[in-house]
Design a protein around this nucleic acid. Structure first.
Lengths: 123, 123
DNA sequence: GATATCTAGTCACCATTGGAAACCACATGA
DNA sequence: TCATGTGGTTTCCAATGGTGACTAGATATC
């Protein structure tokens, strides 16, 4: 039974989908499982992310209550990001996706190659 | 055991993540579960999608082997899109996400309101 | 007979988004 | 004195996404 209809643009479910449909958020959340991590640690760990996007992503995740931010008054101020219990439940769900990707990656790649080859002659 | 490292930018897993991190793809896939649907049916069902994005999304999904395209030679040519077995397995995984969204939507919304209120005075 | 409509898209245009790099302030080390 | 590390913000540019016009052929309407 569908309580909410994600196909209506005003549905809050769709808002959450928009958040989840953010590859950086997914990667950040995945890294925070287990232990809190600092800003530049995250930046170095996630290949290809820019400071701007990391900052933006963390801000959104904090606003959504999926990640908590803790500034420590050390010499250069240290900021630690940790996953919240709510974030943990989402991360667990997203892990299923990571597993799907690992399992079916080859099938998808094969399909792409078939498509690219056929597209030239077939269609 | 992590065979692939999604945090490396060249990892194929990340490529799949990019695909999944597309809200339109998720919505289209969700609609195709059960029965094949025509182009304009999809367009009408998904509030807010443009023809361009629908066309683009369907093309990507077909290339990835998640959706199949069948043109029927009727009076105005009809094109039916159906989910493939591979697409079914992904759709099932994504359904867990939809359920998470429905379950935790209120917590997220509450957190956002707290954040927006505190942000003014607190920080 | 001319016009509007339905089918499934494509194309040109513009706004928003994302990425690269500079910059901030402060402290340490060479 | 200049480079490095901390955690970001700001600016600029390229790429992405959305809007609306357009194609083409047959049917329906005026």
């Amino acid at each position: 039974m569908l309580v909410h209809n994600p196909y209506a643009s005003n549905c809050p479910t769709r808002m959450i989908l928009d958040r989840v449909a953010d590859k950086w958020a997914v990667l950040v959340l995945g890294l925070l499982i287990g232990a809190p991590v600092r800003f530049n640690q995250l930046r170095r760990a996630i290949e290809g992310i820019s400071q701007k996007m990391l900052s933006q992503t963390l801000k959104s995740l904090e606003r959504d209550g999926l990640v908590s931010r803790k500034a420590i008054a050390t010499v250069p101020v240290t900021v630690e990001y940790a996953i919240t219990p709510l974030g943990q439940t989402l991360a667990a769900t997203l892990d299923a996706l990571r597993i799907w990707a690992e399992t079916h990656m080859e099938e998808v790649t094969a399909s792409q190659q078939r498509y690219d080859a056929n597209g030239m002659s077939g269609l």
